[in-house]
Nucleic acid binder design. Sequence first.
DNA 1: TCCTCTTACACCTTTGAATCGT
DNA 2: AACGATTCAAAGGTGTAAGAGG
Length: 468
Amino acid sequence: MQQICDSKLGFSMPQQYPPADEPYQQTSAKLILENSDLWKTFHGFQTEMIITKHGRRMFPHCNISLSGLQPYANYVVMVDMIPVDNFRYKWNNEKWEVAGKAEPQPPQRTYVHPDSPATGTHWMKQSLSFLKMKLTNNTLDQFGHIILHSLHRYQPRFHVIQADSPYTVCWGHFQTFSFPETAFTAVTAYQNTKITKLKIDHNPFAKGFREDGTHPQTKRCRVSNNSPKSSAKKAKLDMKAVYNSPPGLQRSPYATQSVETMKNIKEEGQLSPWAVESLELQADYSSEEQMVPASMSYQHYSPIHSGLPSPASVAGDCDGRSIYESHIPDVATVPEHNQGFRFDLCREIDQQNQQRAPVQSQAAMSSQDYRPAPAGMPVPFKTGLPGYPVYGHGYYPAEQSMSHRGEVEAAGQYMMHPLTHPSLHAPPPPYAPAAIADHSGHQQRSYHHHGGNTAEWSQYPLFSYPCW
DNA sequence: TCCTCTTACACCTTTGAATCGT
DNA sequence: AACGATTCAAAGGTGTAAGAGG
């Protein structure tokens, strides 16, 4: 495979070949979400993630474990955030409510794990941490942080691509995983006091805010009821009343008491329908029966092989971690027919998508509409559509690629989403609905969305490859 | 008036360099 | 000289509180 790519790129790349006795086959990767229990606990209250102008880390962190990779093949591991639905939310009466339609999608960015590219052995050696990934609400952000809208719901999506560099992921074999319990609402300030409590409980950096901590209480008690924000502050004070951890008690990250607290709150009717739903989901989790995750696998250049994302199966819940396994056919990583694009087929698939999803032209991007797909209905992944002309061999400038390789290593781990990167040859694809975390049944699916010609609304592309 | 967001702040953990002992 | 343990300070991650702005 590498030979084919290299010859087209016109430069040599570090190559690692499998042993001669090991067939070079694509396998089905397994991806395990570490600290899944913690995620589920947060999910029970509907997770909130703080986003700031300068970027804020996620908590819980995105930690995953990989298995099922080819030991000697190189992989790139990436994360991006996809909208869960097409709504904007507001916190009202101790619950989240729909406040209107979602705002136009901000520039789509992807966080590339700093170890990328690395061999399958490396990835499988230990769990992967996306600790340094940051979220921002600054659409003009130049640090490459992942840009989100406040009061919108998102879900992390993990990509495992067999590729020798972040710039050849377009030739790689994509496997994408998402976990419903990792969905969160982006906020600039915590709304749900229970989420705040959980964060304080489990985040070591917030230890100073624990009730048993040494954080001065005087400042926090300077709340006046005459303040225009008295209601919000009162809610925060209420949170502190709820928070009654015994002094000196150091809770474990996966404290079961969080579940108990959740159940109590559920009984008190303080949870939104969503949260109640999530509680039921958690009940499913706790019963060791893992729901079907949103996982799929596809090959960009093999439209013949799979027009729809492969349904994922659940390998089970192991040690409190979610395991998602993608099922893909064992095929060569670079099929012969990828030498050219099937524009006709792409457009045909595109039209099929448009029947399911609202179509947005680039000019009308401001009125994007992410419509959740009907439950149980498989929807092709717009970005990951096999054969979709996102990437093109003939447009990859070898020299520029080499110069950018060092750039990506120096500039950090962020890059534009390879699936939404501007394409020279692709017609502006419509925006497709994002992932839907369907907790109502065991038929969860995630839908890839396509940012279209992101050059129009990605003001600061970190790596402006003409081929993307 | 309400809601959302920004900023400064204090407290904390993490990290890495410097130091010391074996 | 090499190695490991300890100490220390700087960097950076937290939520909170106050206020700005729409």
